[in-house]
Amino acid sequence: MDNKKSTPDIKPPHELLSGIQSWRPYQSTQPCCEPILHIHAKDLSIRYHQRMALQQVNLAINQGCITALVGPSGCGKTSFLMSINRLTDLIPGCQVSGQLELKGTNILAASANLLQLRRKVGMIFQKPAVFPFSIKRNLEIPLREHGWKDKTTLSSRIESALSQVGLWNEVKDRLDQPAQALSGGQQQRLCLARALVLSPEILLLDEPCSALDPLSSGIVEDLIMDLRGQLTIVIVTHNLAQARRMADHVAVFWSIKGKGQLLEYGPAQSIFDSPQHELTAAYISGARG
């Protein structure tokens, strides 16, 4: 962890990668996307047993932005995402090294409070993973566990979370029915509500729309766009059109000789319009990946 180079912390990470021009701090035109550093990965590497899945990633994610992680399968995007809430701990044989700071606190430190961390960092998976209980219970379990016991608070938080994802009017009469009875899109929105009910600061999305039909996918996408500015959102996606529609920043990951690496990072527009790396250009044009 202490193999830090003498360069200052905010040193553009892309100078470390050869063949890439120096990094320009992104100045957003949208007021919600302030250039305040929220998630900062420094020399982050992830290993599965002895296999290097992600090598020395340096990435600074701004507060309130939507940052899309794109790239072919197996290049370490999801591993990177899961290291932000340390869900990597649950994967046998997975080791994370380097530093990962949330607002300046290294969450990879042994002293990090995992439960608090995960409360502040919500996560949505590819397949909607609703718990096999009632809709209400799905939201109640995390709330109760994090200390909200009062009945009226519980129900008001549940209502506001469900409203936020546009589910309230659809399900308010059947809160006690099993969540699996909902459609795929509704289940994914319930998962979103379940993450939002804890008022997180960061939302991690692992291909949240890829298991949904186009219509539900559009609804979920709009919801995520609505959250822009309120939360820092990191989304893994295979759908480049989606990344182009949603993201403020795009990070392109690539697997080089079996090791995942960060290829290019910058404002969405510049990545899509004038990619710096030839692999990125090929990937975006559809020639590679």
Partner: peptide
């Protein structure tokens, strides 16, 4: 960092 070792250290008695 297996499943057991780390989650037990979840600071909860």
């Amino acid at each position: 960092m297996t499943l057991s070792s780390n989650n037990i250290s979840s600071h909860s008695k």
